[in-house]
Simulated assay, not measured.
Amino acid sequence: MTAYKKFLLTWLVIMVIGFLIIFSFLYVSDQFVLPFLLFIFISQIFLSKIICPNCGAPVTYQGKIAGTRIYGGFLHRKCRACEWDLNKDLSGDR
């Protein structure tokens, strides 16, 4: 599976679980902020594990601003570090 497809699948799972957490805690309790924030930070850890097969940069890497590396959950088809097509295997046969 390509890094792009892994990222799409991970984002889909994160969004579904996130919406389920929000809706369930809205009906059960008013104190849903802490579990939701924990879920956001834990999901960022999973997203940072998906890396570009060419250069090894996380797919969440967005670039540099004033020398500081910026990471986010935005979906890009090309790696921001090396411009590698993330929807292509390293072997290049797809």
Rank of each mutant, 00 (worst) to 15 (best):
C79Y: 04
L86P: 01
S29H: 15
K5E: 14
Q31Y: 15
G72K: 04
I22C: 01
I14L: 04
L47I: 06
V16C: 02
F7K: 07
Q62D: 08
L9T: 12
E83A: 10
F19R: 03
I65Q: 11
I45S: 08
P35Q: 14
F74R: 03
R94H: 01
V13G: 06
I70G: 08
Y61D: 00
F74A: 00
C55V: 06
A66Q: 14
I70E: 10
Y27D: 05
L20C: 11
I17Q: 07
T2D: 07
K88F: 00
I21G: 03
I40D: 00
R94M: 02
S29T: 15
E83T: 07
I22K: 08
N54F: 02
C79T: 06
T68N: 13
F46D: 04
G56T: 01
V59A: 02
S29E: 14
I22D: 09
R80G: 00
F46P: 01
I17L: 14
L90R: 15
V28D: 11
H76T: 09
N54M: 07
A81C: 00
C79S: 03
F41A: 15
V59H: 02
L20K: 05
I21F: 15
G92N: 08
R94I: 06
V16R: 05
F19S: 06
S43F: 06
T2Y: 03
F39C: 05
P53H: 09
C55G: 03
K64P: 02
V13H: 07
L38R: 09
I50L: 13
I70F: 09
G18Q: 06
P53I: 04
F36W: 13
F39Y: 15
V13Y: 08
M15I: 14
C55M: 07
F25N: 15
I40K: 06
F25P: 06
H76V: 02
F7M: 13
R69L: 02
V33H: 11
V33F: 14
K49R: 15
T10L: 14
Y71N: 11
I65A: 09
L12K: 09
P53K: 08
L20Q: 10
K5H: 09
M15D: 13
F23A: 08
Q62E: 13
G18L: 09
T2E: 04
S48V: 04
C55P: 07
T10G: 02
F25A: 08
H76E: 08
S91M: 13
I42Y: 12
A57E: 01
L86E: 02
D89T: 10
F39G: 09
K49N: 11
P58F: 01
S48G: 08
I45A: 12
Y61G: 00
I45K: 11
N54P: 00
